[in-house]
């Protein structure tokens, strides 16, 4: 297993290198940050000096070379807009996004799996049909629209919850978190549900399909015949066996949620990295975009690794081994 992990990590380095090249050159093809950042009244000479200061007057391969040299020292460049290290900006906002992503993951698992199993065990019941129909809505309604509707209903019309922003934070293990204060929790609820809807629907459908298949298997019949309680049959024998697809999909989704929760963060003005990314793209803040995507790649690689390891825990038949041996 350790050989497997080491090999995977080495492969990852190659992926990151290729990725950095694609992203760097790709981002540099679009527009010119100077036109966005320079004030209207600047003269041609001042604009030229500005271009030189950002290093944009050099050939692109030269810019890339300096980028790689600095990156090897852990410096992913300075933001054009904030003049602060891009990495620092991202890490500063990462806790807010992680909190939102984990909260929405938690909601989709805690609500999605029981509903899915229920619908799988009683496929003909009316309640199951309602669950399945709602899950289609969860899939198909666009996130930004649902988010705005949530704000309209719960913040504007009912006034139960705040509309936007992150609320009070407290420090937990050196990280600012908001779920420990009542105000923070209120602010977290709407965006978390908004972000969870899609995944929840996904989990419901996976869990239902899995349950329907597993419920007919011999070992479930045998467990029943042995006189085990329905509770034990469902919680141990069925649930454990439907988890493999659920874990796979959730693993991929977690990466997606952390990296690209752009829409929800924008609608709810949540101060996370998704909002930073979209702002940076609009302002052509290239160093931040490049750093962001490189971190995202790293994250996906790590999550996939963890998912592979989880497989072997859930299903003893899966062995993590060196492919060659």
């Amino acid at each position: 297993m350790s050989v497997f992990i080491i090999r995977r990590l080495l492969q990852s380095l190659g992926v990151i290198f290729v990725m950095s090249m694609i992203v760097f050159f790709g981002v540099n093809v679009v527009g010119n940050p100077v036109d966005i950042l320079a004030s209207d009244d600047m003269t041609q000479e001042q604009i030229q000096a500005f271009v030189a200061r950002l290093g944009l007057d050099r050939p692109i391969y030269e810019q890339y070379w300096y980028f790689v040299l600095n990156a090897l020292r852990g410096d992913l460049g300075n933001s054009f807009v904030f003049a602060e290290p891009a990495l620092k900006l991202i890490l500063q906002r990462l806790p807010a996004t992680l909190e939102l992503a984990l909260a929405s993951m938690f909601l989709s698992v805690v609500i999605g799996i029981p509903l899915g199993i229920y619908a799988g065990l009683r496929p003909e019941a009316r309640s199951s049909k309602v669950i399945m129909a709602s899950s289609i809505l969860g899939f198909s309604l666009p996130t930004f629209w649902v988010g705005l509707m949530f704000i309209m209903v719960f913040a504007v019309m009912l006034g139960w919850l705040p509309s936007t922003g992150r609320g009070d934070t407290t420090e937990l293990l050196g990280i600012q978190v908001s779920f420990l204060t009542w105000d923070g929790l209120q602010h977290l609820l709407l965006p978390a549900i908004n972000l969870a809807l899609f995944k929840m629907s996904l989990v419901i459908r996976l869990a239902r399909a899995g349950t329907r298949e597993v419920a007919l298997q011999d070992y479930v019949k045998f467990a029943r015949a042995k006189g085990l309680s329905a509770r034990r049959v469902v919680l141990v024998h069925i649930m454990k066996n439907i988890m493999i697809p659920v874990v796979t999909v959730l693993g991929l989704e977690l990466g997606g949620v952390i990296a690209f929760s752009v829409v929800t963060e924008t609608v709810f003005a949540w101060p996370g990295i998704g909002k930073l990314l979209i702002d940076s793209i609009q302002l052509l803040d290239r160093p931040v975009v490049v750093a962001y995507l490189i971190i995202t790649v790293l994250m996906f690689i790590l999550i996939n690794l963890v998912v592979d390891i989880l497989y072997s825990v859930l299903d003893p038949r899966v062995r993590l081994k060196d492919v060659k041996s």
Partner: peptide
Amino acid sequence: FKPIKSSPSRVAALLAGD
């Protein structure tokens, strides 16, 4: 001062009294 870039959200924040 709260930056709320999305216009509909900004209007909603005003309507909600935030």
